[in-house]
Amino acid sequence: MADPMKIRANLVGDSTEVKVLMNHEMETGQRKDAQGKTIPAWFIQSVSATCNDKTVLSAQWGPAVSKNPFLSFKFKGGAKGDKVVITWVDSRGDKRTDEATIA
């Protein structure tokens, strides 16, 4: 199973600033291994973030997003102690969900 994400969620003024690091190879499908065989594409395709069951961001990615992806965004309406839940799904159908408490 994939390793956990690292999520930070901080209240700045009246917005919650979210910063996420994800563990993922983000293989493009363009690289070759030592034997010259193409390494198949394998990357995160969708990301969603919710706070109190409301979607605060959703994204679709291609393989051009860097390895071990970083994402940062801000939303209004979060309060200290609320949870931000992030889920990604990759091109193999693997899925990972983690959460952080707004500080």
Binding site: D3, P4, K6, K19, L21, N23, N68, F70, S72
Partner: peptide, 12 residues
């Protein structure tokens, strides 16, 4: 500098 993937290794 902001959002260094090294943090993933630190957590593990």
């Amino acid at each position: 500098q902001d959002g260094n993937p090294a943090e993933l290794w630190e957590a593990r």
